[in-house]
Design a protein around this nucleic acid. Sequence first.
DNA 1: CTTATGACTATGA
DNA 2: TTCATAGCCATAA
Length: 105
Amino acid sequence: MEKEGFFARTYELVRQIPEGRVASYGQIARMLGEPRKARFVGFAMHDSPGMAAGVPCHRVVFKDGRLAPGFAFGGPDVQRQMLEAEGIEFLPDGRVDMERCCWEA
DNA sequence: CTTATGACTATGA
DNA sequence: TTCATAGCCATAA
């Protein structure tokens, strides 16, 4: 575990997301100091070891508060239930209420 | 070495 | 408002 790439770095940051909070890919990438790698953050999530390893990828959403269509745990609906269980509030549009739940380091 | 791909974001029509 | 395109750059083959 010495050689850590961008992925491992992303996992560590995502793993620091508290319960009831969400963060956008660009937001995470920005915290890493490289706001242009927003895509790789999502890539890292796809390759993520899972929330059991401390990577709550379900708390990572689009900047608009939208979920990843087709690549979530089986459907955005499932992810929505997980987020609701965490205490995240949703908007009538079916988007996460980032205005309230946006993660702040 | 080059090419292809992608859980993003911003911009324009 | 939604839809399409461009730019971004690490990782894999």
